[in-house]
């Protein structure tokens, strides 16, 4: 199956009302690297598909590291070692035989700082599909338009797709980056503090976008902004020192957490 067929199959799949993106099962995940021997310790999480799961915790608690396990971005770190397992549907993410480039087409990622490539808006969104082998202009046009519409950016940029992406506002850039990520039709979207460099209104836009995207994507968002986690997520995991302290429905975590440490953290009594 070539990339074009795969994309079409994926979007048809998504068009089905009963479609639910697959969840992620994390079992006994530990991660070490030379600078940080206890980066993650025995993480067990069952992240449901088609929902937004927030990971909160103090700086350096390992939340970004955990997120980067899901698309094996930690592989770029020197001397990084995993144990345990992470599965996405039928895919064993941590298996050394897993093709990370294929994995990353199923698990997209959005970073803290908007990082559009210094090229046109169109080329940014078309980047992933092109890498995947989509060449026909008509197919690309369609993919680009759909992705920009989903990212709620189409109306703002439709007349200027040839314009350099770096001239967009930060908030628009971040939505562009989200469009770029969903253009390859991933099943999971990882977001690493996606709004921390944005102004409050742009932040709300991103949050609203997250809410709308969760219909068809499993979303895991790392944020140091607890209120943001409260606003956008269905489930929240509180991480501290590489361990999951509490993982529950967001309503529960923010109104009546069961762990003292969680309560201290979300009420600002931490440390």
């Amino acid at each position: 199956m070539d990339h074009r067929e795969a994309l079409i199959a994926a979007s048809n799949n998504r068009a089905n009302l009963n479609y639910v993106a697959p969840g992620i099962e994390v079992q006994g995940l530990s991660l070490t690297y030379p600078d940080e021997p206890n980066a993650l310790i025995d993480i067990n999480l069952s992240i449901p598909g088609g929902e937004v799961t927030a990971v909160i915790g103090p700086s350096g608690c390992g939340k970004s590291t955990l997120l980067r396990c899901f698309n094996r971005m930690n592989d770029m770190l020197e001397g990084c070692q995993y144990s345990g397992s992470i599965t996405l549907g039928d895919l064993n993410i941590l298996d050394p035989m897993t093709d990370v480039t294929l994995l990353r087409r199923r698990v997209g990622m959005v970073f803290q700082q908007p990082n559009p490539f210094p090229m046109s808006i169109y080329d940014n969104v078309a980047y992933g599909p092109r890498i995947g082998g989509l060449r026909r202009r008509r197919d690309l046009d369609e993919v680009v338009e759909n992705a920009l519409r989903l990212a709620a950016l189409w109306d703002e940029v439709k007349g200027q797709l040839g314009k350099n992406a770096t001239v967009l506002s930060l908030g628009q850039q971040q939505r562009l980056v989200i469009a770029r990520a969903i253009a390859v039709q991933p099943e999971v979207l990882l977001m690493d503090e996606p709004a921390s460099s944005l102004d409050p209104i742009s932040t709300l836009r991103i949050e609203e976008l997250i809410y709308e995207l969760k219909q068809s994507y499993t979303i895991v968002i790392v944020t140091h902004n607890m209120q943001q986690a409260a606003r956008v997520s269905d489930r929240t995991a509180f991480l501290n020192q590489g361990q999951v302290v509490e993982y529950d429905a967001t309503d529960k975590i923010f109104t009546n957490p069961s762990q003292r440490a969680t309560e201290d953290y979300i009420t600002g009594r931490y440390g």
Binding site: Q227, A230, R231, T250, D251, F254, T255
Partner: peptide, 9 residues
């Protein structure tokens, strides 16, 4: 009300 205060500030 409590939920909205907790989640929406």
């Amino acid at each position: 009300c409590a939920r909205i205060i907790a989640r929406r500030q």
